[in-house]
Design a protein around this nucleic acid. Structure first.
Lengths: 345, 345
DNA sequence: CTGAAAGCGCTTACAG
DNA sequence: CTGAAAGCGCTTACAG
């Protein structure tokens, strides 16, 4: 049958040299200090061709300690290959840049199958080790796992700021700044009393937005009424909730999440209310295309593709030996939309 | 600094056993014939935890000869991660099934950078060797490379039939059958004289369609006029070409490729002609969403997602030791559309 | 039931 | 300029 592939020794024997020479010729280390006679090089190359030799990349990885493979791990429950997925453009950016950096791309799809929350560790074993380095992302990057990865010395970059005391590398999105800008815009339209509708789960990116909201109040000299900051599940949002905010004097509402905004518009309709007629509305982050009711919403655009690209760039630098954490924060583009009206004095 | 990761020997020493025992415990080979005392197992596990040991997957790959990684290589110039890409749904199917089969997914993005046509071989070296097996696809899977892969004994599955004498595994699309069905449909609408507009490049999938066209003529007892079979570049298609076909008696036209159909409708419009009023039109394969002018075209749907899934299934069987080539041919769904009219007698 | 050894196929100091 | 050897970190027969 198919006789086993020739190995380096076979080539060495065939060419009458030692395996080391074959390795050197293979890796083109023939010009530096270690000089091999041109005839020898030619003889080795001829033998390689003749025997149809091709080096085993696994063995090479073991010997060198790297393999030019970059891994991608997501904490999302579903791999972001579905193009409607929020993270899909990030993945495209990652892929493009991994190609540009001349790496292959390993998608850790296996891990998904293991119970409970997704985890980089399976039975306590780091699943990323096959790749030279990895990018991890998802709405909820697990701070403890990331800390452990760091402590192990595994090279990785997180997409999304992670709250940990470890000096990890990440690319963050400036949700705080973008939210600040939205509040500024509302204030520029004469709003002084802006309600904040947040998700019940206070993940980092949400808290960053809220931070921007609070900072804007401080910097712009607006009074902040805590009764106007509400965390609510879109499922349970009632028309009464909206009414209460408006009765409390709010003239504008910002929503952390598109589902909150959709729910808000729905309950508004129940009462015959709409934006921007009865209240102004801004969304803190781009809505998915499918959310028709938000097509013209005032919001900001998250640079998803660029985030993916930047993550790979940082990872490449880490792998090139950069010491210390590497961090980038990318800003969002404000989108004025049509759900904010100037408040009549 | 970060002291190097503990290896198996370290655990062995710590637990006072030989490395072999650690390996056995690690791989749970503790129940079969080789029995290790429960205390020993516990001691080893405790040592592993204590030292924070995690096995090196590369070393394991080298020793076992596999790593539960499946590769994906495309002959397309651009990786099909762009969601508008024809092959994108195939990739999604591949990814889903690779996950289901508990493998990781290695995307060979590196190869793209190497000059000329895309190739599995870089400087003569098979780039796929890192993965246990791979799926290759693209509009033009290189028959010579695929033959070589087969001769080397590398496990792979091709998406798309490949014309080679080697018994390779592939999943094909029944373009011939689908085209047959289209012709049958046209004949059912009283057409007897059906022109065939093909691409100048006669890649396998195109020839399969043409085969279906010819077979349909034979089986349905239709005369086939070779002057009605034309290979033409969509760029150079002229209104005169259409006119000539119609003057020659053609009442219906089938197009191999959506760009041909778009071009055909364009030149038709120049003459004030349209389908299905002045001629009937069918497209031999689903148009991309962006092709508005073909939104209602009579055509057939290519089961792209299912093709990806099936390819992974075949590959998994090959890796499970199945001997001999594995082949699947998936059929397309006819889409009646609105570009075919019944011919007045 | 456990240990010592060879092997997976490379690369890289280290001698000559 | 080239060879012999050790090492990368595992697994798997093979002895005991």
């Amino acid at each position: 049958m198919a006789k086993r592939r020739p190995r380096q020794v076979d080539v060495a024997k065939h060419a009458g040299v030692s395996p080391a020479i074959v390795s050197l010729v293979l890796n083109g280390k023939t010009d530096d200090k270690i000089r091999i006679s041109p005839q020898t090089v030619e003889r080795v190359k001829a033998s390689m061709r003749e025997l149809g030799y091709m080096p085993n990349p696994i063995a090479r990885s073991l010997a060198t300690g790297h393999n030019r493979i970059l891994g991608v791990f997501t904490y999302e429950s579903v791999f972001p290959l579905q193009s409607e997925n929020f993270y899909f453009p990030v993945l495209v950016g990652i892929e493009d840049e991994i190609e540009a950096q001349d790496y292959d791309l390993l998608l850790f799809t296996r891990s998904r199958r293991y119970a409970g929350r997704r985890s980089v560790y399976r039975d306590g074993v780091n699943q990323l080790l096959m790749a030279d380095g990895s990018i991890v992302f998802g709405r909820d990057v697990a701070a403890d796992e990331v800390a452990r990865l760091h402590d192990e010395g595994y090279p990785f970059v997180s997409i999304g700021r992670v709250e940990t005391d470890r000096p990890i590398s990440y690319v963050a999105t400036d949700y705080a700044g973008a939210t600040f800008e939205v509040i500024e815009y509302l204030v520029g339209h004469a709003h002084r009393s802006i309600a904040y509708l947040g998700a019940p789960d206070r993940s980092v990116s949400y808290r960053d937005r809220e931070g921007g909201y609070r900072m804007a109040h401080e910097h712009l000299g607006l009074a902040l009424d805590e009764r106007r900051v509400r965390y609510v599940d879109p499922e349970t949002l009632r028309a009464d909730d909206l009414q209460a905010l408006l009765d409390g004097g709010a003239t504008a509402i910002v929503c952390e999440h598109h589902r909150l905004a959709v729910a808000l518009l729905r309950v508004a309709r129940e009462r015959g209310l709409s934006a921007p007629r009865d209240f102004s509305l801004a969304l803190l982050g781009e809505p998915p295309r499918a959310a028709d009711s938000l097509a013209n919403c005032t919001t900001f655009r998250i640079p998803l593709y660029a985030i993916g690209v930047e993550a790979v760039r940082l990872l490449a630098r880490v792998l090139d030996g950069h010491e210390g954490p590497l961090r980038s924060t990318l800003s969002c583009d404000f989108v004025s939309g049509h759900t904010v009206a100037t408040l009549a004095p």
